[in-house]
Simulated scan of single mutants.
Amino acid sequence: MGDVRQLREKQTDSEKITINLGYVDLGRIDLLVQEGFYSNRSDFIRTAIRKQLDGHGETVEKSIERHTMELGLRDYGRAELERLRAAGEVLHVRVVGLARIGADVTPELALATIGSITVLGALQAPADIKAALAGRIR
Rank of each mutant, 00 (worst) to 15 (best):
G2M: 07
D3P: 01
V4K: 15
V4T: 05
R5T: 02
L7E: 10
E9K: 12
K10Y: 00
K10F: 01
Q11R: 11
Q11T: 01
Q11L: 08
T12H: 12
D13N: 11
E15Q: 11
E15C: 07
K16E: 11
I17Q: 15
T18M: 14
L21K: 04
G22P: 00
Y23G: 10
Y23M: 06
V24W: 08
D25I: 00
G27K: 09
R28W: 01
L31A: 04
L32E: 11
L32S: 12
L32K: 14
V33C: 10
V33W: 10
V33T: 04
V33P: 09
Q34M: 04
Q34E: 14
G36R: 07
F37S: 06
N40T: 05
D43F: 09
F44E: 02
I45H: 09
A48W: 13
A48R: 12
I49G: 04
I49M: 15
R50S: 11
K51V: 02
K51R: 14
K51Y: 10
G55D: 12
G55W: 06
V60H: 11
K62I: 07
E65P: 04
H67G: 04
H67C: 02
M69L: 06
M69H: 03
M69Q: 09
E70A: 10
L71C: 02
L73Q: 13
L73A: 07
R74N: 04
R74V: 10
R78C: 13
R78K: 12
R78N: 13
R78P: 07
A79E: 14
E80M: 08
L81Y: 02
L81R: 02
R85T: 01
A86N: 09
A87K: 13
A87C: 01
L91P: 02
L91I: 01
R94D: 07
R94N: 08
V95Y: 06
V96M: 15
G97H: 05
L98C: 02
I101M: 05
I101C: 03
G102M: 02
G102S: 14
G102P: 06
A103N: 06
D104C: 07
T106C: 08
P107E: 03
A110T: 05
A112F: 06
T113F: 08
G115T: 00
G115K: 01
G115I: 00
S116Q: 06
S116I: 00
I117K: 10
V119R: 14
G121H: 03
G121S: 04
A122C: 08
L123R: 10
Q124F: 08
A125L: 12
D128S: 11
D128Y: 00
K130C: 06
A131D: 09
A132I: 12
L133V: 01
L133N: 04
L133C: 03
L133S: 05
A134D: 09
A134E: 12
R136M: 03
I137P: 11
